[in-house]
Amino acid sequence: MKNRLRVLRAERTWTQAELAGRVGVSRQTINAIETGKYEPSLGLAFKLAHLFGLAVGSLNWRRRCCRRWIRAEGAFQSSDGETTTRKSEPTRLLYRSGKRGARYYEYCSTSCPAKRSFGTRAPARARSRLPPALSVG
């Protein structure tokens, strides 16, 4: 799934150059982001999200959308009290049993490419979030 930058820009009838000027990058950078050839840095992603009044994760970044940015958003909110972004979603933890045994996955949506497996043992920091039936010693 492509990011929503082109759609959001079109809704506001901005040209690529106008959007580039607002966030302080070149037009080529905006074009590369829209076509999915370049993933913006965290700083630029936040600038774009704030410009459109959205949460950084909701722009559908293709590769490293989820876990990292959602967490970073939480950190960003705490450091800047005036910023009004959507409250970040908690990371979900999934327990799956398969042919090779049970595995734990951490993800923020089912289509998230940053979904990460923890193997058969959930990490200590995530154990507290597990349902009691799935807790591991």
């Binding site: 302080g24 990058v25 070149s26 080529q28 950078t29 590369a32 370049y38 840095s41 700083g43 630029l44």
Partner: peptide, 8 residues
Amino acid sequence: GMDEMKQR
């Protein structure tokens, strides 16, 4: 002085 994509 360049933007992040050009730096990359």
